[in-house]
Amino acid sequence: MKNKLSKWSQNQAFWPIVIFLLIILINSIMTGGDFLKITMVDGHFYGRIIDIFRNGGKLMILAAGMTMVLATGGTDISVGSVMAISGAIACSIIEGNLLPSLNGSVPAAIVLAICAGIICGLWNGFLVSKIQIQPIVATMILLVAGRGIAQLITNGKIITINSDAYYFINGGYILGLPFPLYIVIFLVGTLLLFVHRTAFGLFLESIGCNPKASKFAGIKVSGYLLAIYTISGAFAAVAGLIESAGIKGADCNNAGLNIEMDAILAVAIGGTNLMGGRFNILSSVVGALIVQSITTTVYALGVPAAYIRVLKALLIIVICLSQSDRFKQALAKAFASRKRREAAV
C-alpha cells in the first residue's frame, strides 16, 4: 500500500492533482460547502466544480497542445490570436457574410475554422522548422497579425449569431455533463493515445533535449516540429470555437486575449520543463484546471475585481514555490535548524 502511494507520488501529475484538490478543499471550507454543491436541473448538472471543468475546457485543450510545443524547447504565443481567427471564420460563415454559398452551415463553419487553425499552425511550424526563426519571435508574428486577420474577416465588427447548434459547442449537455468536457476528453485522449502508443513521445523528448543529436539518431526534427505547431494551431482553433460559442458571437479584440500566458502557466504548474525535454500532457491538463480554479475561486470568494489579478499572481507564486525542489529543501532545512535551536534551549 505504502509502496503504491510512493510510486504514485513519483508521477509528475501527483503534485498538481494534490494542489487542485487542495484548492477545491479550501474553497469548500470558505464557502461552507457551497462550492462542492452540485445540483441537477432539467437533467443537467450545475455547480462550481462543473463550472471549472466547463470553463477550463479551452485552457485544457490549449495546455495539451502547448505542452508538446514546450517539450520541443519552443513556445507558441499565437494561440489566443488563432482562437480569434477561428471564432471569426465560424461566426462569419454562420452569419452568411463569408462564403454565403454555404448557407450558414454550422458543420462547414466548424471544419473551415479548424482548417484555418491548421494553416496558422503550419505557418508557425514552417517559420520555426524551415526558416529557423526563434519560436517566440516566429509565433509573435501571428500573435500580432492574427487579430488583424480576424478583424479583416469580420470587417472590424463584433458579430453576434443566432444558432442553437453552434451554441451547443459550449453550452450543450450530454448525459448531464457539459459538452466542452467531451471535446477535452476526445482531443486529449486521442493525443495521449498517439503519444504513448507510438514513439512520438520519445522523439519529442529527444528533440527537446538535443535536436542535433536527435538528427544524428535519425529523427526528422523539422518534420516533427512542423507537426507539433500544426497540432497546437488546430487545438487553438477548437478552443476558439468553444469561446465564441460561449459568447454567441465573435469578438476579435477580446477572444482568447492573454490566454497564451495562462496556457504556458498551466504547463509550468504541471511540472514540464519549459526549456524542453521530459513532458507530461495529463499533468498540464491538471495544471489548466488549477489555473481555472484560481479564477473561479477569486470570484467565489467575492474578491473585488481590482484585486483579482494581484491575488492570482500571489497564488501562482505559492504554487510555483510548492513545486520547487530547492524551496522545499530550504524549508526543510529551516525547520530542522529551528528544532535544533529549540532543543538547545
Binding site: 520519445l202 523528448e205 529527444s206 542535433k212 543529436a213 539518431a217 529523427i219 525535454g277 521530459r278
Partner: peptide, 16 residues
C-alpha cells in the same frame, strides 16, 4: 552535442 540526449535515461538513449 551530437551523441547523447542528456536528459533522457540510458534505456531511451539506447533504443532511440
Amino acid at each position: 552535442t551530437d551523441g547523447i540526449i542528456g536528459d533522457l535515461s540510458i534505456r531511451d538513449n539506447i533504443v532511440l
